[in-house]
């Protein structure tokens, strides 16, 4: 927003501008934007490239400051893929991420819809109750959760199960909050008109609010999906079988009492980014462009 200022300095206030003046400003403004975005973009890319390039260095070369490997090797990839359960960790992470993302997309939207569009006693209290779940560090909940997982209310044990890894995140307060914020912009008149047409309350949610909120739901799903690839303390505690661990937990095994095998960690981390990157590239247009405008017109 600060970037907008320089171009505005010589704008005569309240006087209608000529079209060409406005256009010239736009050109300057865009050029400026490209410059700044490229600079910031560079800082975004460098660490990332460093990570990838490290994954092609051998164990001794990673401690040298050269940016690109002098003797590029794919040994790290071979070692990580063949000597560890990485493919399996990959699969586990994927399953857990898909599970929670589907659940989050549905339940968070539903709860967000209620908070955005209904008035009922206890609304503020219940909303704060949901939010309050964010206010306690999950590091403190490890032990209560583990006790629960060893002797769960449903089933025999949650230890070493996908559900066990996933359950703390199947509904998220951040998501409920996000959906509430976005669904507030759905016009009440639209819902009331539909009610008059005999649409049920769930029908309002499913047939009107969801289509209008698809960009937000998309964003929420992506964030949730990506967030699952970073969580490690809880998945670590609730799994003891190497074949049930997730990728971030697995990466922990490359650090030992003797220090960390950074060439392997970088390789694992680089590998873990690939599917995420594909998702971002494929879906980013969809998330942001969305169909908000067409939805509102139709």
């Amino acid at each position: 927003m600060d970037a907008a200022q320089p171009a505005m300095v010589n704008t005569p206030e309240q006087v209608p501008q000529t079209i060409s003046n406005r256009k010239r400003q736009t050109v300057i403004y865009r050029a400026f934007s490209y410059l700044v975005l490229s600079l910031i973009g560079l800082t975004m890319v460098i660490p990332f490239v460093w990570m990838i390039s490290t994954s092609f260095k051998d164990a001794t070369e990673i401690y040298r400051p050269n940016f690109f490997p002098q003797n590029p090797t794919t040994d790290n990839y071979e070692e990580v893929i063949t000597d560890t359960a990485l493919p399996r960790w990959y699969l586990n992470s994927l399953i857990v991420a898909v599970m929670t993302t589907i659940s989050v997309a549905f339940f968070d939207s539903l709860a967000g819809f209620v908070f955005a569009k209904y008035q009922f006693p206890g609304k503020r209290a219940i909303f704060l109750l949901f939010l309050s779940s964010l206010m306690i560090p999950t590091e403190m909940l490890i032990i209560p959760w583990f006790i629960m997982s060893v002797d769960p209310p449903i089933g025999a044990t949650w230890v070493d199960t996908y559900w066990g890894i996933a359950f703390p995140g199947v509904i998220t307060a951040t998501g409920v909050f996000l959906m509430r914020q976005f669904m507030q912009s759905v016009p009440d008149e639209l819902l009331d008109a539909a009610r008059i047409d005999g649409v049920s309350e769930f029908g309002l949610f499913w047939r009107i609010v969801i289509p209008l909120s698809l960009p937000a739901i998309g964003a929420l799903s992506i964030f949730n999906f990506l967030g699952n690839w970073n969580a490690f303390i809880w998945p670590l505690i609730v799994t003891s079988d190497l074949n049930m661990m997730t990728l971030p937990v697995g990466l922990q095994f490359f650090s030992s009492e003797n220090g960390a095998d950074w060439h392997l960690i970088m390789t694992g981390a680089s590998l873990s980014v690939v599917p995420l990157l594909i998702i971002v590239i494929v879906f980013q247009r969809y998330i942001i462009e969305g169909i908000t405008l067409t939805g509102l017109k139709g």
Partner: peptide
């Protein structure tokens, strides 16, 4: 640009 700004977010914190 959008993809670039998203790169850090998809990279693991430890890396």
């Amino acid at each position: 640009y959008r993809v670039i700004f998203f790169l850090p977010f998809v990279t693991s914190t430890i890396a």
